[in-house]
Simulated assay, not measured.
Amino acid sequence: MRLMLFAAGVLGLCLGQAPALARCTLNIDSPGQVRFAGNSGAGYEGFNRARFDTDFSISISNEGSETCNARLSVQRTDAADLRSGGGDRLDYAVTLPGSLATIVDNQIDVGNPPHAVPVTIASGQTQVQHLAFRIPPGQIVASGEYHATVRVRLLDASDLDISAERTVELVTTVRPEMSVMLYDSGLSSLAAARGTGSHNRTLDFGILRDNAEASLTVLVQSNDDYSLRFTSPHGGALWHETRGAADRIGYTAYFGGRALNLTSGEDYVPSVRATGLNGVSRPLRVRIGQVGLARAGRYQDQLTITVLPD
């Protein structure tokens, strides 16, 4: 008797369908450029100490079949600041709304950018991420156009591969800023910060006497090189209020220790370098000449200071 045993084993391999990979597409709601408008809407003003942001947004769409976990990264492509054609630099930041901390990383950090923002988007959904383009106040740079380029990347959270990316140009116009403010003598930094000066001041000598003096402080702010023009309609003399040039008393004005020659009606202080945030202050001193037997009455002149770009 022969007993034959047969055993048959059947190994069934069932090839299941792998889950579809979530796919995220990054879209930006601007034409590749975000322009910093500032308080005036015309650009950046360094002498304005208030903080202003220009908001923009990024639209992230998940066209895959599963929830997408990703990281949104904003990375520099070149310099760490905005640059002008002349090489001047302007610091900037891209932040989340209500935050002062920048989320911009260096491009070399693409593998694991430390400031990337986590995002989670359900299948078929679109998420809008609001951002702010900020230029800190108080930067005094030459006027002109300033540019920087950043790359906005969507990284897969599992392997940090780039799922999508866009390039955005950040732009601002630095406006020419020039101003003259007049203060009482002995200008303090606190007075300058509070803006307690004015565009008009009166030096009243009271009863005129020979060589009488009075002074004030001139504060100039300019983000470009400049010259100053001093004009006197009376040619550097006080005229009698009713008799005019028929009765006049000469005076000499000194700006920063330099005697101004106002005989022709104007004089210049040329080629002064751009100022810092606090401006440059100089004393303006006026000395009356010989009064002698001048006719009684009120004498006056008007000295105008104008800032001119070089």
Results as ranks from 00 to 15, higher is better:
202 T>V: 06
93 A>T: 06
6 F>D: 13
193 A>H: 15
47 F>D: 09
201 R>Y: 03
299 Y>M: 00
99 S>L: 10
27 N>F: 11
280 V>Y: 10
201 R>F: 06
207 I>H: 09
30 S>W: 02
131 L>R: 00
72 L>N: 02
195 G>K: 08
305 I>G: 03
2 R>T: 12
184 D>K: 14
239 W>D: 01
189 S>F: 13
231 T>N: 03
285 R>A: 07
123 S>M: 08
256 G>H: 06
108 I>Y: 12
37 A>W: 08
286 V>G: 01
198 S>M: 03
79 A>T: 10
237 A>S: 14
12 G>P: 03
14 C>S: 08
93 A>R: 15
35 R>S: 15
15 L>V: 05
115 H>I: 03
129 Q>F: 11
3 L>K: 07
104 V>G: 06
150 V>Y: 03
221 Q>P: 06
213 E>R: 15
26 L>P: 00
222 S>K: 06
104 V>I: 13
178 M>I: 04
22 A>E: 02
222 S>P: 13
231 T>H: 00
84 S>Q: 04
100 L>I: 09
50 A>D: 15
265 G>K: 06
174 V>S: 00
187 L>K: 01
130 H>Q: 15
186 G>W: 06
17 Q>P: 01
88 D>R: 08
16 G>I: 15
79 A>E: 14
191 A>R: 05
217 T>E: 11
247 D>M: 12
26 L>F: 00
202 T>Y: 00
32 G>A: 13
143 S>F: 08
194 R>I: 10
227 S>Y: 05
125 Q>C: 05
257 G>R: 06
81 D>K: 07
206 G>D: 07
173 T>M: 14
250 G>N: 08
87 G>K: 11
295 R>W: 04
253 A>L: 04
238 L>H: 02
117 V>L: 13
237 A>T: 13
89 R>F: 03
199 H>G: 15
262 L>K: 02
310 D>K: 02
196 T>P: 00
152 V>F: 01
226 Y>G: 05
2 R>C: 03
131 L>T: 02
258 R>P: 00
128 V>P: 00
14 C>W: 14
135 I>G: 05
223 N>Y: 09
199 H>P: 02
100 L>S: 15
257 G>L: 08
220 V>D: 01
200 N>Y: 11
128 V>E: 08
289 G>S: 09
134 R>M: 10
136 P>W: 08
170 L>G: 07
65 S>E: 14
222 S>F: 06
103 I>Q: 04
191 A>L: 07
97 P>T: 02
20 A>I: 02
140 I>L: 07
203 L>V: 01
138 G>Y: 15
41 G>K: 10
294 A>W: 04
